[in-house]
Amino acid sequence: MWEALQLEFMQNALTAGILISVVCGIIGTLVVVNRIVFLAGGIAHAAYGGIGLAYFMGWPYLTGTVGFSLFSAGVMAAVTLKAKHRVDAMVGVIWAVGMAVGIILLDLTPGYNVDLMSFLFGSILAVPRSDLWQMAVMGVVVFVVVVYYYNDFLAMSYDDEFARLRNVPVTFLYCLLLGMIAVAVVMIIRVVGLILVIALLTIPPFIAEKFTRSLRTMMIASSILSCMFTVTGLFLSYALNLTSGATIILVAAAGFFISALWEIFKHRQPTYPSV
């Protein structure tokens, strides 16, 4: 098994996995506690429109997708702030329209046949060095922003009304959060695919939320869990010759079920005398 570490593509895949785990641990925590998983899923799927746009216009991948995702995140932020009760329907619309636009634009791009499947499950085993650097820079930016605004993010996520009374710029922070989700999701999709992004944004924070007592520890625990799932998944996929992204997700799912069973077991343990 250890000979796998000698292979450069395996080293790159592991580095990418760890970088992504840290970013998803931080952003995923904010996504889960703010209950915007569906919104994050919408942004991730709408990014397809960006992929199509980039190929159709002949723009670099990042310009097209980041621009498109920031736009769809902006629309979602505006809807959330103006008509909160309409958000889920609006996210559904953007979700579907974004994907459809992407596919039609790829159809219309002459002589180009992109395998959209690779954007679903990604290709973590084929990450080039340059992408690692981009992700490292993004990771540092996300980390710095979250550390700088930590108390404000905490107050906004816990009780946005009270946060407003303490002059926390709730609207700005909400837009900042959606913007960070958009940029992070787009960069990570390219490497590990859409489905793994959603899995890593939700499963580790959801497990971590149960046993942590602060957002900070939840972020750290999510990142560590995410790393464990990614590394285990990568080695399993190498050993058993399975698709890496899907294997990582199933490892994470196994972790999730173990934590859920443990939770049920823990709640059954103490038997109080009935009153």
């Binding site: 107050a155 303490r166 002059n167 942590t212 007592r213 602060s214």
Partner: peptide, 20 residues
């Protein structure tokens, strides 16, 4: 995931004054 002390500290927030 937040402790009692951290909830109370939210009442002391001074936003826009640099690092948290």
């Amino acid at each position: 995931p937040v402790s009692v002390l951290d909830v109370v500290l939210m009442g002391r927030l001074r936003s826009g004054k640099g690092w948290s």
